[in-house]
Amino acid sequence: MVRRMINSPLTILGLVLVLLIIITAIFAPVIATHNPTEVNLLSKLEGPSGEHFFGTDEVGRDIFSRIVYGTRISLKIGLLVVLISFPIGTILGAIAGYIGGRIDQIIMRATDIFLSFPGIILAMSIAAALGPSIENVLLALAATWWPWYTRIVRSSVLSLKNSEFIEASRALGANPFRILFKEVIPNAIAPASIQASLDLGFVILAAAGLSFIGLGAQPPSPEWGAMLSSSREIIRDAWWAATFPGIAILITVLGFNLMGDGLRDVLDPKQR
């Protein structure tokens, strides 16, 4: 399995990128050359140089250091959103698929409703309702993301719910709770977890978008979307301020996508 992954150069690229992102996030204080929030009006709007790799912004903050610290924010959002929505979606999907009947109907109608909005519109409304902050963006994204996992897990559960090993467990007198958590979920979780690894990137992208329209991280924070948002004011004079945070987002999303694609090729033979 590992060999299959390593055989694909794109997957390796993905793994390397993800590793790079994680290392950057962990060692941000070591890697950053400046304090990411320190204002220095004497050196504002400076272009990229040996002193400031990616230049400085309208109040003289070092863009390179801000991007480095921004990795922490984006990674945190990506991980937390997936860590919240994945278990919720998985458990609901497993319950819907395994128990069926009325409960299935209710859960699946709920996912239909959530999925009838383009994700970002729903997240935007929720984030707006909760008030602009990074925590609320996190909750809003989690609230829009779970139905995908519910659908995926439910369909895998449906295909294995009549398996003989599940029946064997019932014949032994196992209660539904045990069957769900010991037999059903462990076997139904693979496709959804592949999706989750792809989603890490898309969540980060969506969060940056929400921050860009002013709903997420607020300006002093070195969040990439927020940085791009404030770069609009100075785009005429400082192309670098509008360029580098976007590259950071692109690389991050690309990394998680490539890794997810690689995982799918290995774990899901149907997609090969």
């Binding site: 003989e164 090993f165 029946e167 014949a171 010991k182």
Partner: peptide, 15 residues
């Protein structure tokens, strides 16, 4: 108790 037909399907592959 019950013994099933398909020994490939009757044992949980992840246990």
């Amino acid at each position: 108790q019950i013994v099933f037909q398909d020994p490939y399907a009757s044992l949980n592959p992840r246990s």
